[in-house]
Amino acid sequence: MALLDFQTSLVRLVRAPNGSDSLQPVSLTADERGYLSDLTEDPAFRFTVKVQRSWCAGRAAKAAYLTLSILPGEVRDQLLEEWVSCGGGTHSFVGRESTAFLEFIASHLVEPSHELTICRMELAALRSSEGSLRFKRPNLSRIDRRDCFVRRGHYAEVVHFYGEPERVLNALTKREECPAISSEITTLIFGPGFDRLYTRATSNELALYDRLASPAAAIALSGEGFARETVQKLLNGGVIEYVG
């Protein structure tokens, strides 16, 4: 059996031991197919599968620590199980695993809900933290140039809380009763340039962030009513950035 075929077949079996088509695309003789089929009946193979799933679940649990910690146990276990079953948890570096798993979790949570807010906050904190490692304060005088365009920052996110953020977080992490979903939304804006990676967004800051869903000339923003200080604050926080 060629090494490539052996490895492909073995990994497919380990990752999906009950999958009927695990060996289909691989070129194997009848004997080789028999060997691999017999393998799946072996307790040592089943233990290998168990170890693989346990390692993957362990990685995923670390990768979405905050969000998983606020979910009920059965929901948490179900999400981990589903994630590992569809091939998740294999990334050895937590950043990639976190992004992928948190996006997966977000797709399974109710909109709006405090749990989804926390999930998005963890994702936003992760992104801005990643960006902070190479963030450099921009030269603010550039905004006066006619050829200066700005856009949303690559590592920026906004997160909407349907209640007072501290109350929501406290209730969830202490497993106390959560405040009801409120129509009064508090928005945190995350950026790699902020000291704590986020700030509570004002309506003007949020409007500017929304405006920059597509790039705009910096000089035109004042004409649209955006204060110079707002533009500068968001540039300094990495919430918006220069194009080019």
């Binding site: 059996m1 090494l3 492909t8 380990v14 290998t48 693989q52 091939g87 294999t90 990334h91």
Partner: peptide, 18 residues
């Protein structure tokens, strides 16, 4: 290992060589 789409994918656990 080589995924079905031709990209490198992680097994999730080290495996021995034959």
């Amino acid at each position: 290992f080589l995924g079905a789409d031709g990209s490198t994918q992680e097994v999730g656990v080290p495996l021995p060589l034959p």
